[in-house]
C-alpha cells in the first residue's frame, strides 16, 4: 500500500513532464519513422524494420534511465525526501517505489515502438510478444543505472551523464546504427564487454525467433543488471543515511 502510494507519485512526476514524453516516446517514434524513410530510399539493407526496431526499443530505454535518475536526484536535493524519511517508511519502500513504476513505462514505450513498427511493415508474429517480454530484464538494467546515477549525482550532473554520455554509449556501442563488425578491433571488444549490444542482440534474437541465441545475451544483461542494482541500492542506502 505504501509502496503503491509512493510508486504512483513517482510515475506521475515522470509522466507529467512534457519533456519526458517528448524524449521517451517522441524521439524513438521519430527515429523509427525517419530511418524507415531513409531505408525506403536507399538500395542497401541498412535500417530494415525487423533489425532496427529492437535497437530503437533498447535505445529508448536510455531515456528511461535519464527520467528515473533525474527524479531521484531532484528528490534528494529537495526537502520532500527529508519529509518522507520522517514517515514510517522503510528503505525498501523507497527503492521499490523508484523501480516498480518505471517498468510499465519502459514496457509501454516498447509496445508503442513495436506498434509503430507493425504500421511500418514489420511482419506480425508472436515473436513480438517475446521481444516485449525480453525488454523486462533490459529495462531492469536501465532502471538500475537510473537508481545508481540518481543516488550519486546532482540533477545537473544527471543531465550530462545520463542525457549525453549514456544515450551516446547506448547508441554507438549497441549496434543500433551500424554493424559493430564493420568497425571491429578494440571498439568491438569494448562494445561486447558492455551490456548494450547484448541487450539489442537479445531483442533481435527474440524478435527473429532465434531462441537458442537468446540465452548468452540474456545472461550478460541480467549479470550487469544485478551488479548495477546491488551497487545502486548500496549507494542509495548510504545517501539515505547521510541525508
Amino acid at each position: 500500500m505504501k509502496i503503491l502510494t509512493l510508486s504512483r507519485r513517482n510515475a506521475r512526476e515522470i509522466l507529467r513532464d512534457p519533456l519526458n514524453l517528448a524524449f521517451g516516446l517522441g524521439f524513438p517514434v521519430i527515429l523509427l519513422l525517419l530511418l524507415s524513410a531513409i531505408q525506403a530510399n536507399i538500395p542497401v539493407a541498412l535500417f530494415e524494420i525487423q533489425h532496427l526496431t529492437p535497437g530503437i526499443t533498447v535505445f529508448g530505454l536510455s531515456f528511461i534511465t535519464l527520467f528515473s535518475a533525474t527524479l531521484i536526484s531532484k528528490d534528494r536535493s529537495s526537502s520532500l525526501l527529508s519529509r518522507l524519511y520522517t514517515a514510517p517508511l522503510t528503505a525498501s519502500d523507497f527503492i521499490l517505489s523508484y523501480i516498480l513504476p518505471v517498468l510499465p513505462i519502459a514496457v509501454g514505450q516498447t509496445v508503442v515502438c513495436y506498434a509503430l513498427a507493425l504500421i511500418l511493415k514489420l511482419p506480425l508474429s508472436v515473436n513480438i510478444l517475446w521481444a516485449i517480454l525480453c525488454i523486462l530484464p533490459v529495462s531492469l538494467l536501465f532502471i538500475a543505472l537510473g537508481l545508481l546515477c540518481g543516488s550519486l549525482l546532482t540533477d545537473k550532473q544527471v543531465g550530462g551523464v545520463c542525457g549525453a554520455l549514456l544515450t551516446n554509449l547506448t547508441a554507438w556501442l549497441s549496434g543500433v546504427w551500424f554493424d559493430l563488425e564493420l568497425v571491429g578491433g578494440v571498439f568491438q571488444s569494448i562494445a561486447y564487454a558492455l551490456p548494450f549490444i547484448h541487450a539489442v542482440e537479445l531483442e533481435r534474437a527474440a524478435l527473429s525467433g532465434n531462441f537458442d541465441g537468446l540465452l548468452p545475451h540474456l545472461l550478460w544483461v541480467l549479470g550487469y543488471a544485478a551488479v548495477i542494482m546491488v551497487a545502486a541500492v548500496f549507494v542509495f542506502l548510504r545517501q539515505m543515511k547521510r541525508q
Binding site: R9, R12, E13, R16, D17, S78, S79, L80, S82, R83, T86
Partner: peptide, 14 residues
C-alpha cells in the same frame, strides 16, 4: 512526529 522542513517539501508535479 511530523516535520515541515526549512525548504518547501512538496511534490511539485502533483
Amino acid at each position: 512526529i511530523a516535520v515541515s522542513p526549512q525548504e518547501t517539501a512538496v511534490a511539485p508535479g502533483l
